[in-house]
Structures are given as C-alpha cells and as structure tokens.
Design a protein around this nucleic acid. Structure first.
Length: 853
RNA sequence: GCGGUUGUGGCGGAAUUGGUAGACGCGCUAGAUUCAGGUUCUAGUGGGCAUACGCCUGUGAGGGUUCGAGUCCCUCCAACCGCACCA
C-alpha cells in the first residue's frame, strides 16, 4: 500500500543517522580539493525566521552538491553572540545576558537541526565564549603594538541620562531611543582601528573580486571608501594664530581657484572659535558654533537642512590672485572630510552659490560653458559643467579639465599647495560603553600610561554580578565596584581596566578564519588549517552587510596576513547576496497591521470583520506583521517541503514572495515523488538489461541540466527540470524488463538530483531502493552524452524571419541536404512560389531561414 | 542629485552564445475518480480573428542595427535599492 510521505518520522530518522555516521565532519586532506561554503552567521535572537531559512537552504544545496561532486567540504555554523539585545533583555527581564544568549542558541540550534542542514556541528562557535574572544583580545594587543589600534578623541552621539554613546541608529528624532532625552554631540576619547592604513589596498583589491561578487556590492564598497583626487591649497591668514599662519583646504576643482570669493570652515574646525577673538564677533560666532556642534547628525544630514553660516571677521588671501576672502563658519562643512575647510567658488558650486546669495557675497565666473554669462549676477545657478577657464591669470583660455592638473603643477611650483588624494573612509571607532561585548584588554596606569593586559592574563572576562535594575549609571563595567581595579602589569601599582567593550562587528570580522580550527588552543587559529581552507569559496548572506561587515572582514584579513597569521589577501572568493523573503502586509482600518492568521480567507479582519487593506509586498517584519513562523510550516509540511519551496520560486539573488499556495504546491510535489518511488517499489517489476527508452533520455537530460543549473545557482530552473523528470516518471508505462531497467535508472537519478533540496526523503527512498550506504556518500550522477544524441532533430523553418514550418531532419545532414529538405516542404514551396530565393541561412540543429521576395 | 538593479501571461518566473517567447509552478476552465470536500489523474489556458487548416499580434514606450532582437545600440518612462551638503 502506497502511503503518504511521513515527514516527521523520516526527517528525524535521517537527521539521527547523519549525526551517528558523522558524514558532515570536515577534515583537511591535502590530496582532496577543498570547498568552503559559509553563510553569514546569525545573531542568536532565539527564533529562526524565513530569511535565515532561505539563506541556509541555499548554502546547504551548495554544500551537499559539492560533497557529491567529490570536494572536501567545510560547512560550519555558529553564533554572532555579543550585542545589544541581550543587554536590553537583561535590563527588562533581569536575566543575565549570557543565560539569555545561551538559551537562545540552544533553541536556534534545535531549529536548524530540525531543518536537516549538513553543518559540521563540531565546529560550532559562539563569539561570547571566552575561548573565542580571548583571541580577539590578543589580536587587539597585537594591533596596538603595531599602532593599528590607537586612541583619539572624536565626536559621538551621547545621551547624558544613560551616560553612554549611542550608535546613529539608536538616535530617534534627535532623542535617545531609551530615555527620550536629547542627544548631544560629545567629544570622547575612544579606541580606533587604523583601517585607513589599508585604504589603497582595500580599494585596489576590489578589482580581484569582479565576477565573484555582485557588482552592486563592489560599487558600494568603492563608494564607501570614496577616493577623490584633488589639491591641498594653503591660504595665508590675515594675521597668524599662534603657529598657524595658513588655512589649508582640499578641493577637487583647482581649476576654479581664481573664482574664490570666500572660505567656509566647519564648526568643529580647531580655528573656528579662535579666529573671531578680538574681532567683536566672538559671541555671535561662539553661539553659532555651539548650536551646530550640538545638532545631531540625523538633523544635520536631512534634506531640508538650511545652509547657514556666520562671518568670523577674519580674512585669508587667495594665493594665486592676492585677493582677500572673508572666512565664514558654515554648517554644511564637515570636519571629517578633507581638512574641514573649503574654498568657496559660488559661481561654480551650488552650495556656495546659495550661501553667497544668502549673505550677499560676490561671485566671479571663471569657467565658461557655451552659454555662461560673463557677469556672475546673471547666473541663476552655479555652472558646474566643463568649460574654458576665464579670468584665471596664466590659465585663461585653457580647457578646465586640462587646467586641473596644470593648476596643481603651478601650485607646487609656487609653494602654495600640492596634489593629494582624499578618502571618505574614516578610522573605525570600536569602543562601546556596553556590557555584552569583549572587554578591551588594556589597563590605564597613572605611572606607566596605557598598558596592555599580558597574554597570560587573557582572556579578560566580564563580571557576572551586575545590577541590571540600575542602568542609569551608564557603562555597567565602569559602574561595577571592583572589576576595573587591577594591579598595573608593569609597575604593580593600582591601576584601572579599560571599561569599554569592543564593537560587535569585530567578532564577525574573523570568525570565518576561526572555523578552520575552532578549538585551537595556542593561537588565534591554526595557520596551516587556515591556509588549507581559506578563502571562503562561497559566502552567502544579506546585502545589508554589503559595506560594514564585508569591509571590516576584508580589513581584518589583511591585518592578520601582515601579522603573519595567514597567507591570504581576500577572505571571500565568491559572494552571493540573497534576496529578501517578502509578503503582503495587511491592515485593518481599526486594528492596524494584522498577522496573516488575523485575516480571514475573504480578506476580513478576524476581530471586527472589516475588509482589510492590502498593503505592499515587502520584507517580512514584525512592525508590519507580515511574518510567518518557519517552524509552524516545518511542523505541518516538513523541512524538505519548506526548503524546497525556498529555492523553487525565485532565483536566489532576487526577492522571494512567501505564499501558502506555493508551499502547498511544493508539498504536493514532494508527495508525488514519494508516491512514484514507492509505487515502483511496490510493483517490484522485473528489471533486465538497460535499454535506450525515452525515460532514460529524459533522465540523462535532467542530470545534465540540473548539474549546470546548480553550478550557476539557478536553483529554480534546476527544480523545474527535476519536475519534468518526475512528471515523466509519473506517466510512462514501461512494458518490458529492459524498459523497467531504464525506469529504475531514471528514478534513481531523480532521487540523487533531488537530494540537495529534499535530503531526508531522498535518503529514505535511496535506502528503500536497496542501498546500504548513505546517499550522502554517493557521488553525483553523470549523464551519458551518447544517450542524448538523436537520429533526427526538429528544425524550425522560417520564411523571411517568420516561423512557418517545423520539419524532421536527420542528425548528420549537411547544410546542402537540409536546404533540399526545407525547399521540398510543401508549406515552404507554397510560401515562396513565384519569388526569388535570395538567401538561405542555416543554424545547425536549430533553424533555417529562407529569404525570398 | 549621483550610482546600481529590474520591467516578459491573471501571478511567481524560464529562454546560458542574437535563432521556435512563455519551460516549470501557482491560479483558472472543463472532464474523470469521490457520497461530498480535499487529494489524485486527463485536457486546455498571452491577446485578437476564424466553424476549421490557420492568420495577425505580443517581452515598459519609441526609434535603430540584422535574414532574424526579450537578448545588441540610441532616446525616454516606471519601480525598487544604495549613497548623499564629500568641497
């Protein structure tokens, strides 16, 4: 009797068997070609969502297929376990962040295991474990030794009530997300990583990633680094400020130097307050500077931010013209780009144009396009395009593009300035006034200064006894009564630990290397293992990490290389950014956004019966309630069905719309495969010698197509081909022992092809087909090209480019013979009757086009 | 504003190099099975015209190259994503 596929029993059975057999354990074997598949590891929120399921289902297909193709596969999983949610849970529910995190890890591990992914669980790691962050602390000290980690003062979002730094995304409308008090910009001394030492290499090596990474991500990285070539120009001050005699500016438009009519400084510029001293404008300038500095970044970068400024009462001299230009403080000038000072050319820069209009500053045209007026007062906007330099001393008449480099040469010669390259990329501030992170392994001693924690004292672990009820005293580590007090490792006198923890982006910047030797005890990771397994052959994750995580991981890889830990320039050879899982959001006029289960089949609200408004199809999110719980579907339909569906509807890099109908359809197909296979086993037909019946050809074609499609990540078309094969297996009626042998081969091939997608069912059917060895250990099927050769092929015949006929042609027919057959076709004869044959185009095995008029 | 991606049936999508547009699936229609619903099976399903063999038309819009264009080139439109006072 043919039974429906019992997913619960069969999935549990094979998960246990795989575990017992240890089939997914990775071992470095020099004689085998390695393949490292990695998904971006999750934050252990405690609950798997559909985005995870999609991400890992893609990776598992890659891992299983590569294993079957004979590669030595490393496919690990772990937890990005430090971070704010654990600390928030601690404050809210008075649970220790570690307890909360480990409980979540346990839950999520169980969920992942229920999905049957082929991870090597022996390599699992959690970044909050001292065995992990110990090496991160060691690395930090090594970076500090090399000057790659240093302290400097910078402006940060600061909440005075909570006494802590806030990330930009934790500032809402200029207020603290937690206590709603106003956020200030505060200057604070923090640890930084000198990522800017690697700017050029990070930029140049992007070229190595073409083809392997999505262009979009490479562009984002390039833009983030933001290289721009230009000039530094020194403008003499009207009178010196201490040792400062000049103000230095950065410009990409040295060709407009003759059109400078004023200068703008950032409010944070070191000279901003000093300049006004003694000019009678001190108060106005001080008030403006204070106002700008206290504005939060979100406000400052909003669209309608009004350009404002204040005159300092001081002047600089334009070195090339000798003209005086007033110095302003302007709110749109950024201290962290260039030198924080800008030469203003209102005729050729839109911002300067607005500013000059507002404050009645003169303008001067120095670049002329075809219809640029001579008189700047006739301009309605800045002219920013190419043109000819005018009123520019020795450069008048020079095309401005050529002028850029010639002016720089002139500046050098005269000693006014130099060429330079400026970057947008800033050093990476990593200090966090948080508890749930890796402590910065540094000690502040009054006598010895800043001293690193000696290696034998690592790891510096977190104290457990934190008073979570009191979160107003700021950093939990700073507030802890004893933890920070320690003897200076150099002089032995009382000293203080650094009470900041490291940015959690650090853990994800090297975890892929630790996976290669996750329990290594004598160093950050085993160099030999890292050299064997790295780089990651296929990395898979969300595009939201396109800049930060991937840039930091690339940076760390280069640092680790330079510290001698690994021989590697780039960590990820290939990157796939998978699309989001989306779903229609639904809203009730009175009850707001509704979960899918709060909506009836007729699109009415279950609470009030009102018709729901259909929202956009967008990323599943708790706020829009357009979410479904993967575990619910796994319980109902099984892991095979959910995973199969995740891959069957859309190519992986595109968004996938979740659909209950789609999952049900997939479930029907899984059951169909089960029925076809069990019906065959039930019938137990006599199988003779293999023949050449049609079903064999279909199967071998499927093997070819599925193999190619998986290789290019077109899982949806691979699945379509698998369906074609099983549709055929469901209809053919073998009539002889030879045909049954063909059928049996085709069925076995189908099971092997479906194994990466519906792994549990495939194993079960494989066993029932009489194999004692695990399907997981079998190699990938290979098609026989001979079988795909046909005696005849169907030739499409066009007349003047339009399809008019299809005729059968012997496979070995030469062009002349084909032409004869085509012209002999009654249909074609009729269509070209009375016309002259102009041309005969033949694309072998595909198409013939008769051109006649 | 700058940069990128994507536009193909009612819907998700296919078409690897310029060569039969719509594979595969969802949905829908009809029929078979079933007491009924579901399941399963069979057939059909871009639009228009035609009783029919067929014919015309069709890949966001418009132009071009070519024997032949979803695919290449030019112009435009729309949606989405990223960055954005970067001097």
């Amino acid at each position: 009797m043919v039974m429906d596929f019992n997913h619960k029993e069969i999935e549990a059975k094979w998960q246990q068997r795989w575990k017992d057999a240890g089939v997914f354990k990775a071992k470095a074997e020099a004689d085998k070609k390695k393949y490292y598949v990695l998904e971006m590891f999750p934050y252990p929120s405690g609950k798997l969502h559909m985005g995870h399921v999609r991400n890992y289902s893609i990776g598992d297909v890659v891992a299983r297929t590569r294993r079957a193709m004979g590669y030595n596969v490393l496919y690990p999983m772990g937890w990005d376990a430090f971070g704010l949610p654990a600390e928030n849970a601690a404050i809210k529910a008075n649970v220790h962040p570690a307890d909360w995190t480990y409980k979540n890890i346990k839950q999520m591990r169980e969920q992942l295991q229920a999905l049957g992914y082929s991870y090597d669980w022996d390599r699992e790691l959690a970044t909050c474990h001292p065995g992990y962050f110990r090496w991160e602390q060691k690395l930090f000290t090594q970076m500090a030794d090399r000057g790659l980690a240093y302290r400097k003062s910078s402006f940060v979002n600061w909440c005075a009530d909570c006494a802590t730094v806030l990330a930009n995304e934790q500032v809402e409308d200029g207020r603290c997300w937690r206590c709603s008090s106003e956020v200030e910009q505060k200057e604070l001394v923090q640890w930084f990583f000198k990522i800017t030492d690697y700017t050029e290499e990070l930029l140049a090596d992007i070229e190595k990633l073409h083809g392997g990474w999505p262009e979009k991500v490479l562009t984002m990285q390039r833009n983030w680094i933001g290289r721009s070539e230009g000039a530094l120009v020194r403008f003499p001050l009207d009178r010196p400020e201490g040792d400062t005699t000049h103000i230095e500016i950065f410009t990409t438009r040295p060709d407009t130097l003759w059109g400078v009519t004023f200068m703008s400084l950032a409010a944070e510029h070191p000279l901003a307050l000093q300049l006004a001293a003694g000019t009678g404008r001190e108060e106005e300038v001080a008030a403006f500077v204070k106002k700008v500095r206290n504005e939060d970044k979100i406000n400052r970068t909003s669209d309608d931010y009004e350009k404002e400024g204040v005159f300092t009462g001081r002047y600089v001299t334009n070195p090339v013209t000798g003209k005086k230009a007033p110095v302003y403080i302007a709110n749109f000038v950024l201290m962290d780009y260039g030198t924080g000072a800008v030469m203003a050319v209102p005729a050729h820069d839109q911002r300067d144009f607005y500013f000059a209009q507002k404050y009645g500053i003169p303008m001067e045209v120095v670049i002329k396009g075809e219809s640029t007026p001579d008189d700047a007062s006739l301009l309605t906007e800045a002219y920013v395009d190419a043109g000819t330099m005018v009123n520019s001393g020795p450069f008048t008449g020079v095309p401005n593009e050529e002028g850029k480099s010639r002016v720089i040469g002139y500046l050098k010669e005269m000693g006014y300035g130099d060429s330079t390259i400026n970057y947008r990329l800033r050093d990476w501030g990593i200090s966090r006034q948080r508890y749930w992170g890796a402590p910065i392994p540094m000690i502040h001693c009054e006598k010895c200064g800043i001293v690193k924690v000696p290696e034998e004292q690592l790891p510096v672990t977190l104290p457990d006894d934190i008073n979570w009820a009191d979160h107003t005293s700021g950093s939990p580590l700073a507030a802890h009564p004893t933890w920070k007090h320690v003897a200076c490792p150099v002089c032995g006198e009382p000293a203080l630990r650094d009470t900041d923890t490291m940015d959690t982006f650090m853990e994800s910047s090297w975890y892929f290397l630790r996976y290669t030797s996750p329990r290594h005890e004598t160093g950050i990771f085993d160099k030999e293992a890292a050299n064997y397994w790295m780089g990651v052959d296929q990395y898979i994750g969300g595009v939201e990490h396109a800049v930060m995580h991937l840039l930091y991981a690339r940076f760390f890889t280069k640092v680790l290389r330079d510290l001698g830990h690994v021989d590697l320039d780039e960590p990820f050879n290939r990157l796939l950014t998978q699309g989001m899982v989306t779903m229609e959001a639904q809203k009730c006029p009175t009850h707001g956004w509704l979960f899918p289960e709060e909506v009836t089949k007729d699109h009415a609200c279950t609470q009030c019966g009102a018709p729901v408004e259909r929202g956009r199809v967008e990323k599943m999110s708790k706020s829009k309630k357009n979410v479904v719980d993967p575990m619910k579907y796994i319980d109902t339909f099984g892991a095979d069905t959910v995973r199969f569906f995740m891959l069957s509807d859309s190519p992986p890099e595109r968004d996938l719309e979740w659909s209950d109908a789609g999952v049900e359809g997939t479930s029907k197909f899984i059951n169909k495969v089960w029925r076809i296979a069990t019906a065959f086993l039930e019938a137990a037909p006599e199988c003779g010698e293999l023949g050449t019946s049609e079903i064999r050809k279909v199967a071998h074609r499927a093997v070819k197509k599925v193999t190619e499609d998986i290789e290019r990540f077109h899982f949806n078309t691979a699945i379509a081909e698998i369906r074609v094969l099983f549709n055929e297996l469901g209809t053919v009626k073998p009539a002889s022992p030879s045909e049954w042998a063909d059928y049996r081969e085709a069925l076995a091939m189908g099971i092997r092809l479906i194994a990466p997608f519906a792994s549990h069912m495939a194993e079960e059917l494989w066993e029932r087909l009489g194999h004692s060895e695990l399907l997981t250990n079998f190699s990938w099927p290979i098609h026989d090209e001979e079988l795909l050769k046909e005696a005849e092929f169907l030739l499409v015949v066009q007349v003047n480019g339009k399809v008019r006929d299809r005729i059968n042609v012997p496979a070995d027919a030469a062009e002349d013979q084909v032409k004869e057959l085509v012209l002999a076709s009654p249909k074609i004869q009729e269509l070209i009757a009375g016309k002259t044959l102009r041309k005969f185009i033949y694309i072998p095995k595909r198409l013939a086009n008769v051109v006649a008029n």
